Measured scan of single mutants.
Amino acid sequence: MSIQHFRVALIPFFAAFCLPVFAHPETLVKVKDAEDQLGARVGYIELDLNSGKILESFRPEERFPMMSTFKVLLCGAVLSRVDAGQEQLGRRIHYSQNDLVEYSPVTEKHLTDGMTVRELCSAAITMSDNTAANLLLTTIGGPKELTAFLHNMGDHVTRLDRWEPELNEAIPNDERDTTMPAAMATTLRKLLTGELLTLASRQQLIDWMEADKVAGPLLRSALPAGWFIADKSGAGERGSRGIIAALGPDGKPSRIVVIYTTGSQATMDERNRQIAEIGASLIKHW
């Protein structure tokens, strides 16, 4: 067993022997301040990774656009098919120029040779490549099948209805392509620590998230040296922004954090800054 596999296998073990965790309302004060600064709703939840206990939450059962955070769930569904012998990570998928959609920095470079399922998941999570996500959605049967996968996990809230990039439209009061912070946090925890996926697939999923290259201005910008984070960000229309993450000190994750916002007129930089400040408060009061 590799060191990384050992780390993920012992996530519940280490967490069980940690000192009790206590909620700190100071972080919620910052979440509410972010709402004021952005002029928009902000949803927040913080779960203990081992027990699933909610440590703090704000608007945990209000719907927010998922945006690209759905790509972690998508690759979880792909990995479940791999575990069941219905898919192979090494299978190569070929596609054409007509398949390319807006923001496809990886797939646009491989029109000639195609990409493997493993490479597509890596591109979808680490670079948020939209064509990679659409190609992977095709392998599982489309958005409705991802929703069905989530329902089978016990998540009857999260739903995907459309493809990239239309799913980022974020129309107010439109339930399409949305989740709730509580539902997303619980589902992410199941994917990373539950028995739904094999140990190898859980490790692969967290490795992809740990290698995320496009979430630097968010929670990662607030992390002290030595902290662990595996995350996936999302951005959408109407001032929408979000991030889902597993993080913790001492090089291992111990909490799940989900943050979503929508309806702001603020710039992307300002949305990023507010999420980073929430992260800084979380870490300060850990």
Rank of each mutant, 00 (worst) to 15 (best):
F22G: 10
L100C: 06
L135Y: 03
A124E: 01
N130Q: 04
H156V: 10
G85E: 11
M66T: 06
M209G: 03
E277K: 11
N173A: 14
Q265H: 14
V82Y: 07
T138D: 12
L197F: 06
G226S: 11
D155M: 01
D129R: 00
E35M: 04
G236R: 01
A15I: 14
S57E: 13
G43Y: 00
A133H: 01
F64M: 07
A200F: 09
E210A: 10
T261A: 09
E166T: 11
Q4T: 10
Q97H: 14
N130I: 01
K30W: 05
P253I: 10
L167V: 14
D269H: 12
L136P: 00
P25C: 09
Y95G: 03
F58C: 05
G236F: 01
A15L: 15
R159I: 06
A222H: 10
K144C: 12
S68D: 00
L160V: 14
L197D: 03
E237I: 10
I206H: 07
D83Q: 09
E35L: 02
R238W: 10
A40I: 05
R202H: 08
G85C: 08
V214I: 07
D250L: 12
D48I: 04
L89Q: 05
K190P: 03
P224A: 05
N173Q: 15
T107Y: 01
V21L: 07
D83W: 02
A183P: 07
I125K: 00
V117W: 01
S104I: 02
A245F: 03
D269R: 11
G242V: 01
I283M: 11
V42K: 00
M209Q: 02
D207K: 12
Q265T: 12
L10D: 03
H94A: 10
L199K: 11
K190C: 10
V29L: 09
T27V: 14
S201I: 02
K284I: 11
G242M: 02
A124F: 00
W227I: 02
P12K: 08
T27M: 06
I275K: 00
V72D: 00
M115H: 03
T69P: 04
L188W: 04
L10R: 05
L55R: 09
T116C: 07
D212A: 04
T147M: 07
A34I: 10
I140C: 06
S68R: 00
P217L: 08
E56C: 08
G226P: 07
F149N: 06
G114D: 04
I171H: 15
A182D: 10
S68V: 00
V29A: 14
Q204A: 15
V42S: 03
G154M: 06
L89H: 05
E164Y: 04
I125A: 04
E61K: 13
L160M: 12
L199S: 10
P224M: 04
T139W: 06
G236K: 01
S51D: 15
M180Q: 15
K252H: 13
A183S: 11
N152F: 12
P12S: 12
S96F: 12
D33H: 15
R189M: 10
D231P: 04
V82L: 05
S104Q: 02
A40G: 13
T27L: 08
R63Y: 07
R118P: 04
E175T: 15
M180D: 11
G242K: 00
D161V: 07
V106A: 10
A182E: 10
L19P: 10
P181I: 04
R81Q: 10
S122H: 12
R7L: 08
G194L: 09
E210T: 10
S2T: 14
S240W: 01
V78P: 00
A148K: 14
W227G: 02
A148F: 12
L205D: 00
P25I: 09
A246P: 00
G279F: 05
S240D: 05
S80I: 10
P217S: 10
L49Y: 12
K190T: 14
G142D: 05
P224V: 03
L146D: 00
T179W: 00
S2I: 15
F228K: 08
P20S: 08
A245P: 00
A276F: 12
I3H: 12
L150C: 11
L38G: 07
F13G: 07
A183M: 10
Q203V: 15
P165N: 08
M180L: 09
F58R: 09
L89M: 11
L136C: 04
M209L: 08
V214D: 02
I125T: 06
D161P: 01
E46S: 13
N152C: 11
I125H: 03
P224K: 07
E61H: 14
W227V: 02
Y103P: 07
Q4F: 10
M209T: 02
T186L: 15
L218Y: 02
E237D: 14
I171G: 12
A225P: 15
R159Q: 09
T69C: 06
A170R: 08
S2H: 15
W208N: 03
A185V: 06
A235I: 04
V214A: 08
H94F: 13
R63N: 07
T158M: 03
D155P: 01
K284R: 13
V42Q: 01
N152T: 14
S96A: 13
E61V: 11
F22D: 07
H5Y: 12
S51C: 05
A23K: 05
I125S: 03
L160R: 01
A280L: 11
A133V: 02
E87C: 07
E169D: 13
L197Y: 05
Y95L: 07
E164K: 01
I54R: 10
E102R: 10
F13L: 12
E237A: 15
L28T: 09
I93W: 03
F228P: 01
L120K: 00
K284Y: 15
H110L: 08
L188T: 09
G194R: 09
Y44W: 03
L136I: 09
A124N: 04
Q86I: 12
L197P: 03
C121D: 00
T112P: 12
S240V: 02
